[in-house]
Amino acid sequence: MSKAIIFEVDGTLVDSNVLRARAWQEALARYGRQVRLPRVLAQMALHGDQLLSEFLTEEDMTRYADELASFHRALFQESYLPRVKPFHGVPELLRHLRAEGWKIALASTGDPDELEHYIELLGVEELIDGRTTDAEVNHTRLNEEIPAEAIRLLGLDRTDETLAIAGSPYDVEGAVRLGMRCVGLVCGGFSDEQLVRAGAIAVFGTPEDLLTRYSESPLAAGG
């Protein structure tokens, strides 16, 4: 049986969740909505219009939701993306997984150019077998459709041949609904309890922590 791992990227491999939330907070403020950062962070699993619907009235959604989302995208890429840092241990973890015979795919809800930036930042271009973003799928169920597309790109027929690694309950739930087992990482800002409640079979701190404790993880048994 093929061994494959699908990594979510934001909050899992790179420390981007707070920066993306700050960009949403700043964009909302520009359009007259003052929202506390913890409230934005709590909605970070949602995408675009879904997130904005938590903070805008139906009338305002109609009037300027698209404009606000475009402003957020430009603001994040210009002011916040350059500040995103990788979590420690990512290249080392991926090299170890490749040595153990795993195929590796990256699945991101970000734009394709953001994912390419992260791959370059992490220095893992030669360590991945597939990548996908929200540009390739329908936006109604990103947490399921993006990893499903990654599975297809890896040439696998069954979701039970793959293991997902994610940092948000939303992404854990999507992987579980697809039939995958999922390992959670708390470096994305969510707690052990939230990730386990979403369906994670094990929880670790960071990619470096997962590598250090590899022998006690589900990965050590070949998935």
Rank of each mutant, 00 (worst) to 15 (best):
A4P: 01
I5H: 00
F7I: 05
F7A: 03
E8G: 13
D10S: 07
V14E: 00
S16G: 07
N17L: 10
N17I: 15
E26M: 12
A27Q: 03
L28P: 00
Y31G: 03
R33D: 08
V35P: 01
V35N: 05
L37K: 03
A42L: 12
Q43Y: 04
A45F: 05
G48I: 00
D49C: 00
S53A: 14
S53L: 05
T62A: 15
A69Q: 12
S79G: 05
R83A: 14
P86H: 09
F87I: 04
V90W: 02
L94H: 02
H96E: 13
G101Y: 12
S108A: 12
E114H: 09
L122D: 03
L122T: 02
E125P: 01
R131S: 12
T132K: 01
T132G: 03
N138Y: 10
H139K: 14
I151D: 01
D157S: 14
T159F: 14
L163A: 03
I165L: 02
A166D: 04
P169V: 12
E173H: 07
G174I: 11
M180Y: 07
V183S: 06
G184Y: 04
L185S: 02
S191D: 11
E193M: 12
G199E: 06
G199W: 12
A202V: 09
T206D: 05
E208I: 01
L210F: 06
L211W: 01
L211A: 06
S217C: 06
G222L: 11
G223E: 11
